[in-house]
């Protein structure tokens, strides 16, 4: 007889017994010893039919192919740039992925991206040894001028973006602030200073209460109240 020992969507900790019996299958973040399935990390248990997996709630960003991230130029190399990405691994932007312009041999690369510049870029490849290749070719990929960059918990980024970007669009529309959300937990904002502050507050609120249902309405109310205060 197979039996689930923990309810769906419960918080589980490493080593915790999740289910007994061969009718359940271990997936991401879980493992089997003999008949038992146990948790291999801290997170939210998700029961998907027979499959048990864990959605992480904490942990650093690890680069993944196809992610759009915000990086900061940390070094300029002979034919490209090295970017720090709020993760254990740095990313490399090669010259031919950097711009559609023609870059003359031996020219000063800091003309394009200087040390300390923030860039929205897309990861094109991650090797087994976590060497990260990024590109600037794609819609919305650019250098970020002005504004400010804040750091959030990477595991909350999907909440901040919302379904099909609904959450972040709502903040953008309400405050008129330009926002770029990187999957690595860096968020760039640019707009009027007091509006930027409201947008940051809203994002912090999502980060803190991201798990509650009816979050969209809550953030909507929060924004309307804040904007009323400002216009008063």
């Amino acid at each position: 007889m197979s039996e689930l020992k923990v309810s769906d969507k419960a918080i589980v900790v490493p080593g915790e017994l999740l289910a007994q019996g061969m009718d359940f299958l271990p997936s991401f973040g879980t493992y089997r010893i003999k008949e038992d399935i146990r948790a291999a990390r801290l997170g939210l248990l998700k029961v998907d039919g027979k499959v048990l997996k864990i959605i992480p709630l904490s942990g650093r960003y690890i680069p993944k192919r196809g992610d759009t991230i915000i990086g900061q130029v940390s070094d300029i190399m002979i034919a490209g740039w090295r970017l720090s990405t709020n993760s254990p691994y740095e990313a490399v932007l090669g010259m031919k992925d950097a711009t559609s312009e023609f870059i003359e041999r031996g020219s000063d690369l800091s003309k394009y991206y200087a040390l300390g510049d923030y860039i929205v870029t897309k990861i094109i490849n991650v090797t087994s040894q976590k060497l990260v290749d990024i590109t600037m070719r794609g819609p919305g990929l650019r250098k970020l001028l002005g504004g400010r960059v804040i750091e959030v918990n990477t595991n909350k980024v999907p909440r901040i973006i919302g379904k099909l970007g609904s959450m972040v669009s709502m903040i953008k529309d309400a405050t008129g602030v330009k926002i770029v959300v990187g999957q690595n937990g860096l968020i760039w904002l640019e707009g009027e200073a007091h509006m930027e502050n409201i947008a940051v507050e809203a994002i912090r609120k999502i980060e803190k209460e991201g798990h509650l249902s009816g979050l969209t309405d809550k953030i909507k109310d929060f924004l309307t109240n804040k904007l009323k205060e400002v216009t008063k």
Binding site: K9, A10, I11, L44, K46, I55, D67, V157, P158, R159, I161, G162, K163, L164, G165, S166, M167, Q183, G210, H211, L212, S213
Partner: peptide, 9 residues
């Protein structure tokens, strides 16, 4: 616990 899975990225 109990939260839905959030949106697409």
């Amino acid at each position: 616990e109990g939260g839905d899975e959030g949106g697409d990225v």
